[in-house]
Amino acid sequence: MSEQLVYAMEVILNGLMAGVLYALVALGFVLIFKASGIFNYAQGVMALFAAMTLVGIMNGQVPFSHLINAIFGSHITQFGWQVPAVIAILLTMAVMVLLAWCVQQFVMRHLVNQEPIILFMATIGLAYFLEGVADLMWGSEIKSLDVGLPQGINLWIDETTLNIFGYGFFIDNLDIVATIVAALLVIALVAFSQYTKQGRAMRAVADDHQAALSVGISLNFIWVMVWSVAGFVALVAGIMWGTKSGVQFSLSLIALKALPVLMLGGFTSIPGAIVGGLIIGVGEKLFEFAIGPLVGGATENWFAYVLALIFLVFRPQGLFGEKIIERV
């Protein structure tokens, strides 16, 4: 087998893994859009907020300590304890549920029946607000996140591929974990929406919220639930990306990686987010590998959007999106 083909195989595998990470972010967008028709611009910031909260809780950091110290002249920054990762994740999830309730109670509830663009603008405001709150709450320094996930080259894959192809493939252990987590997450989300009462109610609201309301489904509850689930997905994405390069403001920018995934996979399909992520991941990595050196490299950011636009020409609703036909 030619050397270039072996390298391309390694690139494809890594592209698939990167695609899973993109899909993790895209899933949060899909959940909220599917249930409420809102394109949640704040999803990336929610991942940042969740990861910062997780690290803060794990390290026993006093929230809003800068503010407290500035007002009262005190010097408190730490509680002096460390919280195990599992408990910290549960506590962070509780914070995300509280955030979901606040978003519904103070923002979205007042905007029911408004145009989608108004709701979108509200989520832009929410994104900037959350950024500021996260900074104020936990500080803006870069924090290490270690919840015990393995990182670095997978030696088994390295050795096995070395024996087969004469070249050991690099696959990051963290990417393998992310793939497993994403698969479990999708199974759990599908099972939740298909087999639980709340899940079916969520689907009913997604199909027709007025009809759902007429059969006694509480819109408030469902939307809080959806934002909570999106918060959970944001937490998972935040853990994966935060483990890779530290928990910092740039985490919020991972949303940019999710946009082409959504355009390609469709805004309303959970499998679409996964498949879209995989196509974008493989597409951008292969393009960078094959064409990048000819055009000066750094093609990944723009090529992801080009790829999504090409798909849009043929399927404007995305690969798995709902085709909307409206009468004139």
């Binding site: 690139v11 890779k244 740039s250 990595k285 490299g297």
Partner: peptide, 18 residues
């Protein structure tokens, strides 16, 4: 060997594989 990374630079898998 020149290996550009697009801003912000969170994703550098391609460059490090190279």
């Amino acid at each position: 060997v020149l290996l550009p990374v697009d801003s912000p630079g969170q994703e550098q898998k391609s460059q490090w594989l190279q």
